[in-house]
Every structure is written in C-alpha cells, then in structure tokens.
C-alpha cells in the first residue's frame, strides 16, 4: 500500500504539482476542473484515468492537445467506468504474471463521468463494475444536466429546473421529476465507500478522496459541479453558488461506509433557506413567480425531510 499524501492545510496542499493542465476548453469558471484538480492532487500515486463522453472529455483531449499528465482513456458515453475497470483487470493480470514495467508502483484507477453518463446512459456499466468489485473510483461531475450538448434534462436534474428538453413555459414550471438518489443506489451495491462532495469544501473532499483511495473495492463519489453556463450564474460565482448549495443543505455532504454506515461530514453553522440558493441561478428564476410558489415550498420541504432522514440514519448507525 502506498503512503497517503499528507495535506495538513491549504498552504501545504498548494505545493502539489497539478497533473491536469490549463488551456483545456472548459468554460471559464467551470467547477469540473476544480473538482478534478482537488481529486488528482489528493494523491501522489500514479493514476490511470478514464472519462465518459461529456464536458470534461470533449474539453481536455481534443486532438492535437491533451490536458492530462497521467494515462487517460475515453471510449464512449456510457462505458468510462468499464474502460478503467478493464485497465484495472489488466493491471491485476500483469502483476500476477510479473509483466508490469514498474512493479513497485501501484496506480489508482479513476473514472470521471457526468451525471448523464452516470445516472442515465452509463448506469448499467457502473452497476456492473461495482457488483464485480473492481478496485476503481467512479467520480460523477454532477451538474444536473446534459451540459455538453446544451442543457437537456437528465435524471439528476432537480425539480423546477428549466432545461432545453423540460423548459419552463406558460403552463410548465420545468422539470417535474425529483433528482435520482444515486448515492443510495450505489450504497445498496454494498460498495465499501460512497460519498457526496463539493469543491468549495476542499478539506472534506480531500479526506473523502483519500479514504476512497485507501479502501479496496469500488468507490463512488458524487461531486456537485456548479455549472455557470447551464445553471445560469456568473463564472466568478462558482464557489459562492457552491457555498449556497452546501449551506442550504440542497447538497448535504455525507458518506456511507460499507453500504450502511452513514456519516454527515458537514453541518452548516447557519442553515440558509433553499430559496436563497435557487434564487441565485437563472435556471430556477421562474419559480419565483406567484403561481410557482408551491414548487418553492415543495423544495424546502424535500430538503428538510432529506436532512432529517440523513440525521436519523447517522444517529441509528445504519
């Protein structure tokens, strides 16, 4: 087992040498690359990475440029998890057969995918990888929308959001379905570790990523990725919006160990109203019309109920 990188504080963390490069084509202010940087910098181990088709993939490997300083593979929209699982299987085989070129080094296998590639089209592949117990980490860059193709709804899109395929209009308040609870689904696979993270809470992120790298077996990370383009806020506000999300408990930060033991890892000192979070984004602005007040009420109720549920789970230790 390789040694865990010591990151006591942000100053120490800032001595990291990034393995993700600039002049990629992600939008100014994109949270994807903040998340990717935090994850990659959480370890000094070698990395074997994959990306499913999506913003991260189409912006970081457009010929003739790559933004990756570690081996990286993209196949398709649905199969990034299986791509890196295949590489992990090859690593095991070559290790057993004594054919690794650097036998003393133990790379980490990480698959990056958007919510569309994880909650929707790639769901079966991820489920298969987790059931088989590959030693991989699957990271969802969850911006709650098909951002790469211009803002279509996914099963991660939250209720009331206006997307191009479920737009708000004269008779519609936008998305009618509630966001899919992927963490619960992945925990139900019996995965040794699943966690929800947000880039603004970098310390919580690093801790969870390092825990994920340390366990044997498949790890699922759902990372909130505030999307300046599709959530409709200014690029400079990415971290501020993320703070609103975590402090309103719209994105509670927690982990589930071995499929059952739930820990809440961040408790805001002052919980802010959900409408403060919703109101800061263009995708929800129609909810503030009088006729949509019931959706705002519904939102707050759901967030309260979820928080209550998480606390009871944590308390019960199951």
């Amino acid at each position: 087992m390789s040694e865990m990188k010591k990151i006591k504080n942000l100053k120490e963390f800032s001595t990291s040498a990034d393995r993700f490069e600039g002049a990629n084509l992600l939008c100014p202010g994109c949270a994807h690359s903040i998340i990717v940087r935090e994850i990659l910098n959480a370890t000094n181990d070698d990395l074997i990475l994959s990306a499913s088709t999506g913003c991260l993939e189409v912006c970081t490997a457009v010929y003739p440029y790559t933004s990756w300083d570690a081996s990286w593979i993209h196949i398709g929209f649905e199969n990034g998890s299986t791509a890196v699982a295949g590489a992990e299987a090859m690593y095991k085989a070559l290790k057993r057969k004594g054919r690794l070129k650097q036998p003393d080094r133990e790379p980490k296998f990480v698959s990056f995918a958007g919510d569309g590639a994880s909650y929707d089209i790639g769901f079966q592949w991820i489920s298969g990888c987790f059931e088989r117990g590959h030693n991989i980490m699957h990271v969802v860059l969850d911006n709650e929308v098909y951002a790469n193709t211009g803002g279509q709804r996914s099963s991660s899109t939250p209720i009331g959001s206006s997307t191009t395929t479920a737009p708000a209009g004269r008779v519609s308040y936008g998305e009618k379905q509630n966001k899919k609870d992927m963490l619960a689904i992945m925990a139900a696979h019996g995965a040794p570790y699943v966690a929800q993270v947000a880039p603004n809470k970098w310390k919580d992120m690093i801790k969870k990523i390092q825990h994920g790298f340390a366990v044997e077996g498949p790890v699922f990370i759902n990372a909130m990725s505030a999307c300046t383009t599709e959530w409709k806020f200014l690029p400079e506000d990415t971290i501020a919006i993320s703070d609103l999300a975590t402090d309103s408990l719209v994105f509670p930060l927690y982990e589930i160990i071995d499929g059952t033991k739930l820990n809440i890892t961040y408790r805001p000192k002052n919980v802010i109203p959900v409408k403060d979070y919703l109101g800061a984004q263009g995708r929800f602005k129609h909810l503030f019309k009088p006729e949509n007040k019931h959706v705002l009420d519904e939102w707050q109720k759901r967030v309260d109920e979820k928080w209550e549920y998480l606390q009871r789970r944590e308390e019960a230790g199951v």
């Binding site: 942000l10 600039g22 603004n200």
Partner: peptide, 14 residues
Amino acid sequence: IDCQFCWIYCPDIS
C-alpha cells in the same frame, strides 16, 4: 496573506 484560496479554486491551474 498566502491563504491559497485562489490556488485551490482556480479552475485553470493559473
């Protein structure tokens, strides 16, 4: 004050 907030939250390694 070298707090490094800018470093960690810069999306572009800049």
